[in-house]
Write a protein that binds this DNA or RNA. Structure first.
Length: 106
DNA sequence: GCCATGGCTAGTA
DNA sequence: GCCATGGCTAGTA
């Protein structure tokens, strides 16, 4: 496993309940500003093994990025149960909910 | 080759 | 809309 992958896993696992981070933000913090798509892949492959809070990751516009209706519903329910408000269109107010880890902890 | 991205343009109103 | 991006994985040699 690459350092980038480990880093991404560590960052995602530390997103607190009630907050979200974006793919690009995670990639940049992990040292690869253009690596947003890799974050997608890592979420796919590593969520189970590491019990990642996959539902706390959204796209740069603050939207639920999933395509499938059932999965979108799952993410919406998970976020709302943590107190994150999701609009009818599936968007989250990043101003309010985006998490910025303490740079010291990275 | 794949993408649950992202950022920049073209083209409408 | 469009397409450059880039680490990872599947699948061939």
């Amino acid at each position: 496993m690459q350092p980038f992958t480990k880093h991404v896993i560590a960052i995602i696992s530390r997103i607190p309940s009630g907050h979200v981070m974006t793919y690009g933000q995670i990639a940049a913090l992990a040292g690869s500003p253009r690596g947003a798509r890799q974050v997608v892949r890592i979420l796919h492959t590593q969520t189970r093994a590491h019990k990642l809070p996959w539902h706390r990751v959204v796209n740069a516009k603050g939207e639920i990025a999933l395509q499938e209706d059932l999965a979108r519903m799952d993410q919406r329910m998970s976020l709302e149960s943590e107190g994150v408000h999701v609009t009818a269109l599936g968007t989250i107010d990043l101003e309010q909910y985006q998490y910025w880890p303490d740079p010291e902890s990275i």
